[in-house]
Amino acid sequence: MKLQHYLGGLEGLGPITVETRVFVEEWEKRIFGIHTAMMALSPQLPLPATPSAFRTVWTWAHLRTGAEGLNPFDYFKYRYYEKWLGGISGYFIENGYITEEELEARTAEYLADPDKPLPQGGAPEIDQRVERYLAEGDSPKRDVAILPDFQEGDTVQVRNVPTLEHTRLPGFLRNHSGVVETVYPGAYGYLTDTGTDGVGAPMPVYCVRFEAKDLWPGNTEPNVTLYADLYAAYVTKPTA
């Protein structure tokens, strides 16, 4: 049971920090750029091949899985982009692009001399593909005809699926009943196969409406409705 899958509704967390900036440190912009480039260069995309040495798959699912797999105390300890930096550095080491020793040694050089220049050069096709990825996106909609089991207005129950690593099911919805608000047209895959958790292959997705008073009995606010977009694998007919 990963706490990161169950964040909705935790109590005792204290006040919101209303920080409107996207990045609070200049260095955070760099890891964001690297992550985006990795997604753009990932080989499963139908984009033109480039001379990039990047040959392994990287998607949002990989980034999320890494963050979800952290010790939950570390998940709260490290800021958002600190988690990205840890996860992405680890990925490049695990997949043999760089060694930990190289990274440590180069980090020490830049710590001693932050203004030491970056290397220059590289194939323009790499940057062209990155721009094209951002402009075209990567839709999970698949040209597969699957009839949804449910229609608008149906009551559904959220399944307590056996999740091992990664999920797209907000944990606080498990076992609750909701009403289908929208049946999204078509079928949608996901960026990775989540195994026994159930998503990956194309399937319908439903927008399901929940009453807050049912999710948090006696412990919520009046007149609040919560909607979640749920893959078909996460919902079932209510038990009698």
Partner: peptide, 27 residues
């Protein structure tokens, strides 16, 4: 963190994963 991400970016450029313009292209 600044040093580590700069080191990572430098190594990725040297190894041909990205170019020296990639991150700025994204931004």
């Amino acid at each position: 963190s600044a040093a580590r991400v700069r080191a990572l970016e430098a190594l990725l450029i040297e190894k041909g994963v990205i170019t020296s313009k990639t991150v700025d292209t994204v931004l």
